[in-house]
Simulated scan of single mutants.
Amino acid sequence: MHAGTRRPTTRLIPAVLAAGLLMTACGTGTGGSQADAPAAKVTVTPAAGAAAAKLGAPISVKADGGRLTTVEVKDDKGAAVPGRLAADGSAWTSEGKVRPATTYTVRTKAKSSGGKESEGTSKFTTEQAAKVNKLTNTPGNGQTVGTGMPISILFDHPVAKSSRPEIEKALKVTTQPRVEGAWGWVKDWSGKDRIDWRPKDYWPSGTKVSVRGALSGLNSGDDRWFVRDYDFDFTIGADHKAVIDVPSHTLTMYDNGKPVGTIRGSAGSPQDPTRGGVHTVRSKNAAETMDSATIGHGNEWMLDSQWVTHLTASGTFLHSAPWNKSLGVVNNSHGCFGMTTSDAKRVYDFLTIGSTVEVKGTTSTKKTDVGNGLEVWQESWSQWQQRSALK
């Protein structure tokens, strides 16, 4: 009898110990092991394996039954795709939209509400863009320009009005020091669509400017896509300006607000008065042939000129006019300001791309359109702000 009672007791001791060990492994109140708990369900859009994912949407990652702890997205060139993780970890969204004909790899880590950690990788490729839009930016990257220079972006193809707010939001201007300014939509002299950014007032000399255009994957209209981002930087140089006083036949140069020289010349005649207001130097040419046909005067003349500083796209220039025997005495040009060759070179060397030239005292009543060159200063600040698609 004693032997029979000891044997069952001996078997029960390991059983009790085993039960205690099982509860310790499970923890208190879980009812099962962490290994058995369900993982968070992670969904990546576009879906994995898609060989022709649609354009026009960002990359999104969502977690059900838990939270995302890490999201890493790279394109097929190894470049990281920036995005934002929700505060509660429930979702991640890329800052931009997917680019055409690009393969993306999405790596995620998540933790379920039960504490289970999981990892996943998803890969997809976007469809080709049947039609593409590109742009040309002014100033060029690394350029030093004058204090009146706008940022000007010219598009190869039309930009639909419905697409303009999103495109404008994707364009970011950063300045050091901080400068207030705004984007405005413009019809270029060429007939193409353009968006310019101008400061409220002239730039301070020495300002560093960075422009970042996160345009890749945006539809500019008519199913025409941007296929890359655009980044460029430039610097504001010396504060060089000029003022033309039409009645006195003079052009005065100013360095940081101080006059540094006055030149006599001839502005437009009463029949073709020089356009008034503040113009921006858009380009320069050391030698050029003045063709009357380009400004609506048929075949009246074909003259060679030097040291040509371009203001409007329609033909308002500062240039040498050695054929004019009334320089500084009579305003008899067809809208330009003509000077001796040596004086034209002085002006040419003094004014940089982006410098401003103000024309005072003219009889011209024509309003110069903003797109007729870089004519952003023809409008007041309040007028300019109305050109924004986000107003």
Rank of each mutant, 00 (worst) to 15 (best):
H2P: 01
R6Q: 13
R7Q: 06
T10S: 13
T24P: 00
A25H: 09
D36E: 15
A37Q: 14
A47V: 03
A50G: 10
P58I: 02
S60N: 10
V61T: 07
V61W: 08
G65P: 09
E72L: 13
A80K: 15
A80P: 08
V81P: 08
P82S: 07
A87F: 09
W92I: 04
T103R: 15
R107L: 00
K111Y: 00
T126H: 08
L135M: 13
P139R: 03
G140Q: 14
I151A: 05
I151K: 04
S152M: 01
S152K: 05
F155P: 03
E166G: 08
E168K: 06
T174V: 07
G181A: 05
I195G: 05
D201R: 09
G213D: 09
A214E: 13
S216E: 13
R228K: 15
D231G: 01
D233T: 15
D239S: 14
V243E: 14
D245H: 15
V246H: 07
H249F: 02
T262W: 05
R264K: 15
N285Y: 03
I295K: 07
G296F: 12
H297Q: 14
L311T: 02
G315N: 04
A321S: 15
G328F: 09
R346E: 10
F350G: 05
S355I: 12
T365W: 04
N372K: 01
V376W: 08
Q378N: 10
Q386I: 03
L390W: 08
